[in-house]
Design a binder for these strands. Sequence first.
RNA 1: GGUCUCAUAGCUCAACUGGAUAGAGCAGCUGCCUUCUAAGCAGCAGGUUGCUGGUUCGACUCCAGCUGGGAUCACCA
Length: 458
Amino acid sequence: GYSVAEIYKALGYTVHKVQIINDRGIHICKSMAAWKLFGNGETPASTGLKGDKLVGKYYVEFDKNFKAQCKELEAKGLSKEEAEKQAPIMKLAVQMLQQWEQKDAEILKLWNAMNSWVYAGFDATYKRMGVDFEKLYYESNTYLLGKEEVLRGVEQGVFFKKEDGSVWVDLTADGLDQKVLLRSDGTSVYMTQDIGTAILRFRDFPKIEGQVYTVGNEQEYHFKVLFLILAKLGYPWANKCYHLSYGMVDLPTGKMKSREGTVVDADDLMDEMVEEAAKQTRELGKIDEMTEQEVNHLAEMIGLGALKFFLLKVDPKKRMMFDPAESIQLQGHTGPFIQYTHARIKSILRKAESLNIKPEVGDLKKVNSLEPSEREVIFKINQYTTKLQEAGREYSPAIVANYAYDLAKEYNQFYQAIPIFNEADPIKLKFRIAFSQVTANTIEKAMAVLGIHVPERM
RNA sequence: GGUCUCAUAGCUCAACUGGAUAGAGCAGCUGCCUUCUAAGCAGCAGGUUGCUGGUUCGACUCCAGCUGGGAUCACCA
């Protein structure tokens, strides 16, 4: 999603990158409940853990205890549903949610503390990845507007109220079901909040034409419903909202489940990749004239480049297999392959400069006398804009990623086939240096769209 | 069960939206560093594009059916 925003920026659009933060609801309360029971007052400061990790730990802790308690209750003869309701730890979480909605001071304090830990943790991770958002939306704020809108919808007759007080939308005419928008006790659901968030965004950024939601494909139904609701409420931009539904990531060991803690941790992954990059850089003996700081900087660039490229090279709409062992690869169809090509070109450009050879495109009629490998590279360079447009149309950074790879691949073939500085003809020599420079620039641009930096040497 | 979605080399992925001999990487095998960085290049091997039909001059691509994965259909988020 982030890279799609960068694609549109590169195409000249104005883009606002925003994020919704789900800071409301039972899932936070689960962590809170487990922390209260087993936390012994732990904080990120006291444990040295990142805030999001600490809260995540108690989310897993909750699930563990919850399951154990359910099992116990089921052994006593309760049904599964009954046991899930009666489990003491779940009762505590539900109670906390109610207290939160009633603005209970003590609960709000704990909620504030744990949320701030999570955000601080996320911030650190985003910062390292080079991801930033212009504005964050908090569900705990936006649900109120959503509620207003739903009630307005009832007045206008696009939604209806049942006897128990719950509010519904009827989407059977659109081939869908009836969906609840407000619970019988008047509290809001996930959908309510998203209605508010959407409207708020169009108020905050009046000039935008539409919105792209980058959310996993398990929420396809949700967004289908959301956009229909927005249309029913009379918002003309409703049909300019698009759900970029990305496929889930599978691990060789099975599915990722946050509740069970079987997720690949982004921070750990980045550490591993950077470490591997540093190791290989040292083994290849490329750090001769580099300071320790420069080596670390390079390793960070390569490690993160490898990771980002690995994730972005496949079509986001499809389900992908993420094999950590394979992602750590720095050869072949990878980010470092492209970074390496860039570094080599830079090396050529430095040499040309030291020899005082100026890049010059010269007479374009020479195109006919081009070597095949030269023609391939130039052909590829010229595809950049087309590919970028295609990527925008398809909402697919993979198109940019594979373009950058293809360009690097073509250039490497030329590089191998024709040693530039052996060329006696100065016109050809200058021309080759010129399109080498353009290649490097194009690689840099394409990679920048993906949030990947390219080094001067590696 | 309804709806949606996916299936391409041993593995991970491409294929300009219906065009020529389906391409890369990894893994395996062979070569290439006294020449701009070998994180590279060249080559070998690997395919009845899940199956069966249909439309078309032409199908990985479109349609139907089947098989097998996945998602979703909560007063969860």
